[in-house]
Design a protein around this nucleic acid. Structure first.
Lengths: 116, 116
DNA sequence: TATCGTTATATCTAAGTAAATATAACGGTT
DNA sequence: AACCGTTATATTTACTTAGATATAACGATA
């Protein structure tokens, strides 16, 4: 017998590492998307209610690990500068989100034919 | 062109919640397996280098959430007592580990046909 | 050359979490 | 009844991590 409403739900988090160090994951992709939208690290940090330092650290670590540049940062100049997400960075967002979506779908299917 | 050795690797963590509260996940299942092996919370905590309190809390929370008892705890008596994992608890271990294995396999396949 | 908002970076403070410590309760065994 | 090793629980301490704060560097623009 199947229950109509089962409060149990499967959750998952996935991320990609390079040599044991985190490269991209849920939080970094969310941040990267916000940078893409605002073209600014500080603005992205603000909307995500995250300190600028933390955002900068996350993005910088990611950029150092990536085989191609993820960000183009401009210091000074018009409006103080800003940060753009490269085409490579945009593909990272797309690929990670697709992977995550597929994983969730897979897990939902597997989980629903389980009785805990 | 495919690289022979790509240091990038996909990682995942999955867990099951009930009404927003964690039910079982990587750490709890690992602990539960150790309790099954040693028939003792304190012994399991010691081998996993975890404080008894933390182990007890994790197991107790899990047990409270489960629809059936996961543990049979004996206080006092021969050897001070001990803790046994119920048949239901054993099925939880099996099902979670199978789910996790399947998920990893799925992600590996998806990930390997990705170029980051 | 003064201004502005950003990136870049260090340092200090706070908070949340884990760990350590202590102690009570328990009930077969001796 | 005393002992033992466990479960059960509270309280205190330590630590790691996150957050706040401060400040320098930058370079187009006016």
């Amino acid at each position: 017998m199947l229950k109509v409403r089962d409060a149990m739900e499967i959750k998952s988090r996935l991320w990609i590492e390079k040599e044991g160090k985190p490269f991209i994951g849920f939080g970094r992709i969310k941040l990267l998307k916000e940078v893409e939208k605002t073209a600014s690290i500080s603005a992205a940090a603000k909307t995500l209610k995250m300190s600028y330092k933390k955002a900068w650290n996350l993005l910088n670590d990611m950029d150092k690990i990536a085989k191609q540049p993820v960000l183009v940062k401009n210091v000074g100049g018009k409006n103080g500068g800003g940060t753009e997400v490269t085409e490579y960075g945009k593909t990272l967002i797309q690929k990670f989100e697709r992977l995550n979506t597929n994983c969730i779908k897979f897990l939902e299917e597997e989980f629903h034919q389980l009785d805990l």
